[in-house]
């Protein structure tokens, strides 16, 4: 729970920002992603592509038929070249804790389609 002061601050921001845009608030975009393919970037150089089946206000999520990509970069000791390794795995149905999430982007509409 937030203190009354900060809650009011957040609420007034919400109210003021609703005018003039198709989306009233950021979570509306996530709602539009339900049952759609999404790209999710997580902390620790992880990415998921899968179908969004559920989420809550913390951005905890359930993603189905997901493919996870984990990237790790190593520096070659001699050439100082950066080697990027990616590991992929399939996750049939997974709950993702929201605090690791950095961004989420729908894959069903391409750049510019929303305007």
């Amino acid at each position: 729970m937030q203190s009354a002061g900060s809650a009011a601050e957040g609420a007034s921001t919400n109210g003021a920002l609703t005018g003039g845009s198709i989306l009233g608030e950021p979570s509306d975009l996530v709602r539009l992603c339900l049952d759609e393919l999404v790209y999710v970037k997580l902390r620790g150089e992880r990415e998921l592509v899968g179908r969004l089946h559920g989420y809550d206000q913390h951005l905890n999520m359930v993603v189905g038929d997901a493919e996870e990509t984990v990237m790790s970069t190593e520096v070659d000791e001699e050439t100082f070249e950066q080697i990027v390794r990616t590991r992929k795995r399939k996750l049939p149905l997974v709950f993702v804790r929201g605090d690791t999430l950095i961004l989420i982007s729908p894959l069903f509409r391409q750049s510019g389609a929303s305007r």
Binding site: E9, G10, A11, T13, L23, P26, D28, S111, G112, R115
Partner: peptide, 22 residues
């Protein structure tokens, strides 16, 4: 994580959750 995002700011909320396009 050091990344920077440039695009049109569509909306945001009190937590600074942000939606951008393009």
């Amino acid at each position: 994580n050091g990344a920077e995002y440039r695009g049109n700011l569509v909306c945001l909320d009190g937590y600074l959750n942000i939606v951008m396009e393009g």
